[in-house]
Design a protein around this nucleic acid. Structure first.
Length: 305
DNA sequence: TTCCGAATAT
DNA sequence: AATATTCGGA
């Protein structure tokens, strides 16, 4: 399937050597924010639909592969021939807005970036790429020993999280792996573990008891669709040798596309009247993959533990 | 030894 | 409530 796709093309009419970095930068700025794109984990068509129409299953590819690929792409774009590997600690996309920063800076740890302009958070890829902390007073450059400020799970981060977890499937979704695949600067395994714990609780709640008052649920979680790949399934991945065994039950569309309403953005307040209807997110082209909490939608091998 | 996950702490 | 830390067990 196509990856993040943007119909952007470069104009070749001008110089091609001199201000390359600038041009690349400019080009990058024109790209949609990472969160505006349909997530990699989200199949463009539902599995049911795919098999119903005999669409060849997408070759298995891990997010890791994709990350690596995009990294190479970026490096090629900026003419960096150093294509050595080793990604888990490298950040692919940063340095976007970093051209304005000190170019001699070699350090790239320490995820400290917090907007002093609280009212305007620009949605950009790097926003989700570095963990946003609530404090940036400590400047100990060593990532160890220094107590990191509490991680704030912004909608962007959570999105990424859900994305990765969905990709892995509930069984493979363990903190370390999630953390690696999320590839968020400064994000620790503990951070993920903690969030994962909570997320699992949330899933249990929601999948168990249908028809609940949305107001009683977490805003953050409620605003993110629960991928069907999380339905106590091994994760629809490489595992099966040849999967003709599935009984796809093609469900025609017109089902019940849920469009979770994002209501976050500002800090803690009750459901009182909020001023500006802050919407940071455009509706996602999610397919109707998740209708109502039906216990067993599909051919699911109860392959839990 | 590293990692996971539940319990517990802040 | 949200996130961190602890801790027993795989």
């Amino acid at each position: 399937m196509a990856e993040y796709e943007n119909g952007v093309h470069l104009d070749e009419d001008e110089n091609t050597d001199a201000g390359d970095d600038d041009r690349v930068h400019e080009w990058e700025l024109g790209l949609p924010a990472i969160d505006d794109l349909t997530p990699l984990s989200q199949a463009l068509i539902s599995p049911e639909l795919a098999s119903a129409f005999s669409i060849s299953p997408e070759p298995y590819r891990t997010v890791l592969d994709i990350n690596r690929a995009s990294k190479s792409t970026l490096e090629v774009l900026r003419g960096n021939p150093a294509l050595s590997q080793g990604f888990s600690t490298n950040n692919n996309f940063k340095s976007f807005a970093e051209s304005t920063r000190d170019p001699t800076d070699t350090e790239q740890e320490e995820p400290d970036r917090y907007d002093s302009q609280k009212s305007q958070r620009i949605e950009s890829p790097e926003e989700a790429d570095s963990a946003v902390r609530a404090d940036n007073s400590a400047d100990d450059p060593s990532a160890k020993t220094a107590k990191r400020p509490r991680l704030v799970w912004t909608p962007q981060l959570h999105r990424r999280f859900v994305d990765v977890v969905a990709h892995l499937g509930i069984k493979r979704a363990v903190p370390k792996t999630i953390m690696q695949l999320m590839n968020v600067e400064g994000l620790t395994r503990e951070n993920v573990a903690s969030h994962l714990q909570k997320y699992r609780l949330y899933l249990k709640r929601v999948q168990g008891l249908p028809g609940e008052d949305p107001s009683s649920s977490d805003q953050l979680f409620a605003s993110t669709p629960v991928p069907q790949s999380l339905r106590e399934n091994g994760g629809a991945h490489s595992g099966h040798g040849n999967g003709h065994l599935h009984v796809p039950v093609p469900r025609p569309y017109g089902a019940t596309p849920i469009m979770p309403m994002p209501v976050y953005g500002m800090g803690h307040h009750g459901p009182g009247g909020n001023g500006p209807g802050y919407h940071g997110f455009k509706p996602n082209p999610y397919m109707a993959s998740y209708t109502h909490p039906h216990p067993h939608p599909h051919p699911v091998a109860p392959n839990d533990k």
